[in-house]
């Protein structure tokens, strides 16, 4: 299975990773090789096999509805790139 330049550009947008024009060829090759490796899967007969999401056949535990957290805004915002009046600041969305 090959992956096209267009595919790479598409997934780069979905993943929000800037890919410069000169990087696309190398990615085309590397991702193509990885997908070749992965394509072995198609040979497996999995018709009657249920997909496995977790190694253990366990079920989810539920937590009681009790407040256990206290305000730690100061500690969290001390490591933030930009804050003001308790808000995280990010650049505007340009639509």
């Amino acid at each position: 299975m090959t992956i096209s330049r267009k595919d790479i550009e598409k997934v780069a947008v979905l993943a929000r990773i800037r890919v410069d024009e000169e990087q696309v060829s190398a990615l085309e090759k590397d991702l193509g090789n990885i997908l070749d490796l992965v394509d072995q899967l198609s040979a497996a007969d999995t018709d009657s096999v249920a997909p496995m999401a977790h190694p253990l056949d366990a079920v989810q535990r539920l937590r009681p509805d009790e407040v256990t957290e206290t305000d730690q805004r100061e500690a969290f915002q001390a490591i933030a790139p930009a804050t003001e009046n308790g808000l995280y600041l990010v650049p505007r969305v340009i639509e």
Binding site: A12, R16, I17, R18, F76, I79, A80, P81, A82, Y88, V90, P91, R92, V93, I94
Partner: peptide
């Protein structure tokens, strides 16, 4: 994603630019 902690690129010109 650069919003709450960790690395953020220099002078992002808009949100998409910050992310990518």
């Amino acid at each position: 994603d650069g919003a709450r902690y960790g690395y953020r690129c220099e002078d992002p010109k808009d949100l998409l630019d910050m992310y990518t």
